[in-house]
Amino acid sequence: MSNFVLIPGGGSGPGYWSLLEAELRRRGHGTIAVDLPYEDEKAGLEEYADAAVTAIGDRRDLVVVAHSYGGFTGPLICDRLPVELLVFVAGMIPRPGENPGDWWQNTGHEAALRESHLRDGRDPDGQDAYALFLHDVPRDIADASLEDSRDQADTSAKAPWPGQALPNVPTRALICTDDRFFPVDFMRAVVHDRLGITPDEMPGSHMPMLSRPAELADRLEFFRGA
Rank of each mutant, 00 (worst) to 15 (best):
A153F: 05
P162Y: 00
D148N: 12
Q152S: 12
N168H: 13
L166P: 10
E147P: 00
E147C: 06
A173T: 09
D154M: 12
A157E: 12
E147T: 04
G163H: 03
D154Y: 06
R150M: 13
A153I: 04
T171P: 05
L166D: 12
P170I: 11
I141L: 14
A142M: 02
V169H: 03
E147L: 13
N168G: 14
I141D: 07
A153P: 01
S156D: 11
Q164N: 07
A144Q: 12
R150V: 15
A153D: 15
V169F: 05
A165C: 09
D143Y: 07
P170Q: 10
K158D: 12
Q164C: 00
G163N: 05
P170K: 13
S145A: 15
A144N: 05
N168F: 07
S156L: 08
S145P: 02
R172F: 13
V169M: 05
G163K: 02
P160A: 02
A144L: 12
P160L: 03
R150L: 13
D143S: 10
W161V: 04
D154V: 09
L146H: 07
D148H: 04
A142P: 02
T171H: 06
W161Q: 01
W161D: 02
P170M: 11
P160Q: 01
L146W: 08
S145L: 03
P167Q: 02
W161R: 02
A142L: 04
T155C: 13
E147F: 04
Q152W: 03
S149I: 05
R150G: 07
A142F: 06
A173Q: 06
A144G: 06
A142K: 01
D151Y: 11
P170L: 12
I141F: 09
A144T: 08
V169P: 08
